[in-house]
């Protein structure tokens, strides 16, 4: 056990975890809207829109995240029209490529979570709203969405943790996140166990916080 290495690399890894946290929060934020959008497509009784939303979530849940990042980072850059359009300003940055891939990936899972939450809402709630003369829009915003959010909290908590672990793949497209820096230190010092212990504990610490925040929210909004 090399304690000097542990003490020396701890600040570097802690600093790198800022990149990880930024990636997680930005992609979760975008992914939430993508997920909500596709979940709504699924619950509307329109067959074509439903099929589109289903194939989106099936594709992104059925392929590894690594493939998705590589298609966006290496693949899209080869298309002439993307390189000439305004999109290139975004797609040439590995950071944004990673964020797009993560957001689309978590969006697919979130859409499934929200869809099942919407579908488990008791029809009585909606009927009660209708019988009180509440407009459809208000029923959706004031009744369906709050209940769906509460229902999907536990599953969404798992998704946040999966995303936290998923962002480690950003290191494969040259981003120096927590895993990226950990790999760099491992490959220069050949001391994998020490680095694993620190990087692993930082990840576990974040997981622990997310887990407890979700638990707290579940308790607060339980009915």
């Amino acid at each position: 056990m090399d304690f000097d290495l542990i003490i020396n690399s701890f600040p570097k890894l802690l600093f790198a975890s800022i990149t990880t946290l930024k990636l997680v929060s930005v992609s979760l934020f975008i992914g939430l809207f993508i997920g909500l959008f596709f979940a709504i497509l699924r619950i509307k009784n329109n067959i074509i829109l439903g099929k589109i939303a289903y194939s989106y979530s099936y594709t992104f849940r059925g392929t590894p995240l690594l493939v998705q990042i590589f298609i966006i980072y290496y693949g899209f850059g080869q298309l002439e029209f993307i390189r000439e359009s305004f999109l290139w300003a975004i797609l040439k940055e590995p950071y944004w490529c990673a964020v797009i891939a993560f957001a689309l990936n978590t969006g697919a899972y979130t859409s499934e979570i929200l869809r099942s939450a919407f579908q488990t809402i008791k029809p009585g709630f909606i009927e009660a709203g209708k019988s009180l003369g509440v407009p459809n829009k208000l029923i959706f915003y004031k009744i369906q969405i709050p209940i769906a959010i509460r229902q999907s909290l536990p599953a969404y908590g798992n998704e946040i943790i999966l995303m936290l672990k998923g962002t480690s793949l950003a290191s494969t497209v040259t981003l120096m996140d927590l895993t990226g820096v950990a790999k760099y230190i491992i490959s220069t010092t050949f001391k994998p166990i020490e680095v694993f212990i620190i990087a692993g504990s930082i990840y576990l610490f974040f997981t622990f916080i997310i887990h407890n925040v979700i638990k707290f929210l579940e308790k607060k909004y339980s009915f």
């Binding site: 672990k165 962002t167 895993t179 790999k183 994998p192 694993f196 692993g200 990840y203 622990f208």
Partner: peptide, 22 residues
């Protein structure tokens, strides 16, 4: 179970890839 499920897969692979042979 807690450690393996809380730490990214890639980190576990690096641990065994670099640590396995040593």
């Amino acid at each position: 179970t807690t450690i393996i499920r809380g730490v990214p897969e890639l980190l576990v692979i690096y641990l065994f890839f670099f640590g396995g042979s040593s």
